[in-house]
Amino acid sequence: MALENNTIRTGRVGRGITGKVLVGRLGWTVISFLTLLVLWAVVAAIMQSRLFPGPLEVGDKLLSEAASGELFYHVGLTLGRVAAAFIAAMAIGCAIGIALGRAKGADLFFDTWLIFFLNLPALVTIILCYVWFGLTETAAILAVAINKIPNVAVTVREGARSLSRDLNEMSEIYRFGFWKTLRHVTLPQLAPFFAAAARGGLALVWKIVLVVELLGRPNGVGEQLHIGFQLFDVSMILAYAIAFIVVVQVIELCVLQPLEARANRWRR
């Protein structure tokens, strides 16, 4: 039988495809970013308004804030709050999630509570925390953590429900005991759920932290945005927003993604 030309598939190796795809991706990112900048500059030039500054003015503002040290001070404080709230929420949320996923009775009982907290608007938690605990750092971080805990718990509960019975029986037969089972059997199965919770968590936490700062903290990016709002200083608002986006992206690329890659290295 003759082999028709159009049914031949050639393997990728040696055709330089993988390399090309990578360069192509980076190239597209740069092009898309530059296009956005140009578009922004053009619109700003047409508007000619103090309330719609162009990229150059915002860049100026960013540099002057950085030079005075203000930028690093406020971004640093906000990051500290994000980290504290994030860690607290992950630890407590994971513990609750695992417990609910494993104990059916507890799950039935607490489900209503979880739904209540899931649907409680962030602003309500924040206001109540400030009212009950005063305008303190602890109240601020608590408010953020409470907003985040139910999401983490629900995600991790899903994982705990789907734990493999097969592997559990295996660890029972070979007498792994509690800690060995937790470390080598249970937690690795939950890792993807932790990662999903962490990912969604960071995005949510840093947005809520800004609101918390705006409402009751004398410093941080949220408070700077508040000042920018009162002075109608749009350059300042955008400068801080951009600084923050950059920081979050750097954390994503340099911390979260390598961690995830490490956790997934056993996959085919």
Binding site: D166, Y174, V185, W266
Partner: peptide, 21 residues
């Protein structure tokens, strides 16, 4: 010891680790 119908190895541990455990 129990050898199951499926191997039931821990996919996130190497072969040697699975046995050492």
């Amino acid at each position: 010891s129990f050898m199951f119908q499926t191997p039931r190895l821990l996919p996130w541990r190497t072969v040697a680790q699975n046995i050492r455990l």
